[in-house]
Amino acid sequence: MNNSIIANALRFLVLLLVQVLILNEIELHGFIHPYIYPLFILLLPFETPRWVQLLLGFIMGLLIDVYANTIGFHAAATVWLAFIRTTVQEVNKPSGGYEPEQRPLMFDMGVKWTLFYVGVSVLLHHFVLFSIEAGSFANVLSTLSKIFVSSLVSIFLMMLYQFIFVPKQ
């Protein structure tokens, strides 16, 4: 349990720093904005109380906002992500259900499960985020393509992260 808290706190810091220091500087064609910090919420243990997930999502999002000078955008999107996370997990439940000691990591759940879980969550997160950013439905097509392309890059980065940081157990 303690181990898990430390691991998640560390992940929180690492993802925040990677996002703020590296990814925020990347703006491919002003079109692709990859985000990796939502992975923190996605990788919280299954049994985390929902209110904790929501609060953590809010805090994480707000910190990103502070650095990106977009107060509220990421907070709203990440709280939304924390909220739908459980639903996505339910939809994606293996036929036998989740084992008590399983974590939502690729290491525990496999590539296929993770790809679905991360893919759907990130799309939903990006959808909210870019819609808020666009502020109106005036340029829906441009917004949608932004969401789609950025999501692809974000999902790729998140999968890559999980390939690299394999828990030692």
């Binding site: 209110w51 609060l55 809010f58 107060i71 509220g72 907070a75 709203a76 709280v79 459980t86």
Partner: peptide, 28 residues
């Protein structure tokens, strides 16, 4: 409770968005 906390946080987020972001405020 999770749903209500979610609503509460989102409302707060949108309050922040509208208050701190000029473009979104004007759109809203």
């Amino acid at each position: 409770n999770a749903f209500f906390l979610f609503l509460l946080l989102e409302v707060f987020c949108f309050y922040l968005i509208v208050n701190y972001n000029h473009f979104q405020r004007t759109q809203f």
